[in-house]
Nucleic acid binder design. Sequence first.
DNA 1: GATTTTTTGTTTGCTAGCTAGCATAATTGT
DNA 2: ACAATTATGCTAGCTAGCAAACAAAAAATC
Lengths: 126, 126
Amino acid sequence: MDAALRPYDIGSTQWYVLYQLAHDGPTMQRDLLRMLQIERATLSIVIGALVRKGLVEQVPDSIDRRQKRLRMTAAGTTLWGELPDLTFIRRVAFDGIDQAEIATAIKVLQTATGRLDELLRRGTDA
Amino acid sequence: MDAALRPYDIGSTQWYVLYQLAHDGPTMQRDLLRMLQIERATLSIVIGALVRKGLVEQVPDSIDRRQKRLRMTAAGTTLWGELPDLTFIRRVAFDGIDQAEIATAIKVLQTATGRLDELLRRGTDA
DNA sequence: GATTTTTTGTTTGCTAGCTAGCATAATTGT
DNA sequence: ACAATTATGCTAGCTAGCAAACAAAAAATC
């Protein structure tokens, strides 16, 4: 993804933010946090890069002034239209592999990461 | 790994370097490149951190003065002895999962990453 | 023997992840 | 109504990845 996006000076996480705004419209920054599963501080930097490049606007909410609503700018919409389709990546990686084997791989990885997340959660609570 | 190593102010890639030096003794920096599968520039930063902390020494080779031989210092050896066993991570993640399913997951992932590496290799050549 | 190419390592500047700590705003409890 | 707590976002400082460009040394070529 990063290699495909490099000509546009966009990283993969920045792409995900644009994707969200392009598909669901304006979104609260705090909601993106849940969707992207990254830390507040990290998202802050990513959004900062998009704002700096003029692709995204950050508008404080009128009701809760802590929260910020993210919206694509005209320049952002234009760039989004120029970005290449990235689905070829998934095709290259997985086309032709047995569906059952892919399902098994997903199950194994979900189990393992779930257990490690749980371990980490307990560790940081204690 | 990072969470377990944080109390010792060591990152996971730094750990791999120490592991290599602890098990195989002094190693050329260029050989570590192949072992860790990262870029020259990245390794340079990681080694820099270890040297700065006084855990590793960087000695220019007498024959080929471009190359640098990495060696653990006394402080590095001491720290290595204090680091916890990290094999519990693998146990937490995978214990009890069917061996055949794990093998399938490995096969699927190796195929996918192999294809993507190949795609990237062709892309950067052209 | 001199020139060109290749190899090795570093630096710079970027993305992206983390924790810790701060400010501000909203909410909750008393 | 005021105080304490919680929520949101930011900054600073770190690890770790990348590409591009540079310097120095060695190797290859002419």
